[in-house]
């Protein structure tokens, strides 16, 4: 279990250029009970279709898990397991390590790829210990956090991935609170600090970037991480048809930057040279609409400041890499 080679084996080969090169054999079956227009389910499909072979899926408790696995109906056309909420990285560690032992015994020919799907609650909050342990031990897996920025399955409660100012049922706005009072946790930096070979953000709106990142991650022998922006129309309060549009605007306003950290080096994969006004993103969602009212102007300014600051930090980190 090495930390991975210095350069990706297939950096060029990893690049996905067209949908036409993607296998059309589905790895997820319809008939699941996700809400119409579910962002996380789009993330799951795009990631699974990017795999060159069937991975074993370890799924944390959460929306994706419950809607796809109501006994006796499962939507998974690849091997799949759910155990609990906080431990998907540990379960995946066991799957991966056991396959190594079975291969050494000659009972299987090779290990299959392991992918984890966990929500922001299962990753940023309750699952961060198991995630940290698995990253440190260096298990070969792709850990995907599908981020819908709150606990949606239990009914829209704030998580440490919920952005500043957002309304949730446990971060309501009122005469004192502006919505959520704390900033979003920088999970990619936390993951990257473990020294993993590859960590990146991606958005369901940018499938080419997302699928390229999946394939890049797979080229490494070690733990890799993908933080995928996956809007929830129920929790964010927008029309189901706008799921992709909302994700796209998050990227175009620099609210959710697309970047990667490869062997410690930051690179913005989608430079946003002329960002749209943040209001273009906020105004189409009920969870942020209050920020456009005069009494929350300070909070709006604070949120804008956070967005600018993060972009500047990323730019600095990325240029530090170029200077090397």
């Amino acid at each position: 279990m090495s930390a991975g080679s210095a350069e990706p084996k297939g950096g060029e080969r990893a690049q996905v250029r067209s949908l036409l090169e993607i296998d059309r054999r589905e790895r997820l079956a319809p008939g699941h009970r996700a809400c119409a227009g579910c962002g996380p389910m789009i993330a799951v499909r795009q990631i699974l279709q990017a795999y060159p072979e069937d991975p074993i899926v370890v799924n944390a408790t959460g929306c994706v898990e419950v809607v796809t696995s109501v006994y006796p109906e499962t939507s998974w056309l690849v091997p799949w397991v759910h155990v609990a909420f906080e431990n998907s990285a540990a379960v995946a560690s066991g799957v991966e390590a056991a396959m190594r032992a079975l291969r050494r015994r000659g009972e299987i020919e090779r290990e299959r790829p392991v992918v984890v799907f966990a929500g922001d609650g299962g990753t940023f909050d309750i699952g961060i210990q198991a995630l940290s342990g698995a990253l440190e031990r260096g298990h070969r897996m792709l850990y995907v956090c599908y981020d819908n920025e709150a606990y949606m399955n239990t009914g829209i409660q704030r998580s440490s991935a919920t952005p500043y100012g957002a309304w949730t049922t446990t971060s309501p706005y009122g005469s004192v609170w502006p919505g959520k009072r704390e900033a979003k946790k920088d999970i990619v930096a936390i993951v990257a600090a473990h020294g993993v070979p590859y960590a990146a953000t991606a958005s369901i709106s940018h499938w080419k970037d997302l699928m390229t990142k999946v394939r890049k991650a797979l080229s490494y022998d070690g733990p890799t991480f993908l933080h995928v922006y996956a809007p929830c129309n129920r929790g964010w309060r927008f029309d189901p048809s706008l799921t992709v549009e909302v994700a796209k605007r998050a990227v175009e306003t620099r609210f959710f930057p697309l970047y990667e950290v490869e062997n410690g080096r930051y690179r913005i994969t989608l430079p946003v040279t002329k960002p749209r006004p943040l209001e273009d993103f906020l105004s189409i969602q009920g969870r942020f609409r209050h920020l456009l009212l005069p009494q929350y102007r300070e909070a709006l300014e604070e949120l804008k400041r956070m967005v600018d600051e993060r972009w500047e930090r990323l730019t600095r980190l990325a240029s530090a890499r170029r200077a090397e």
Binding site: S93, A98, G133, R137
Partner: peptide
């Protein structure tokens, strides 16, 4: 010892890893 020794970061993860391992048919 011919198997894999996984020094996990908690007992919760110990049993979780055992569950994952057992689901591959391995002895844990």
């Amino acid at each position: 010892f011919k198997g894999e020794f996984v020094p996990v970061e908690s007992e919760h993860s110990a049993m979780s890893a055992c569950i994952g391992g057992a689901l591959t048919g391995a002895r844990v």
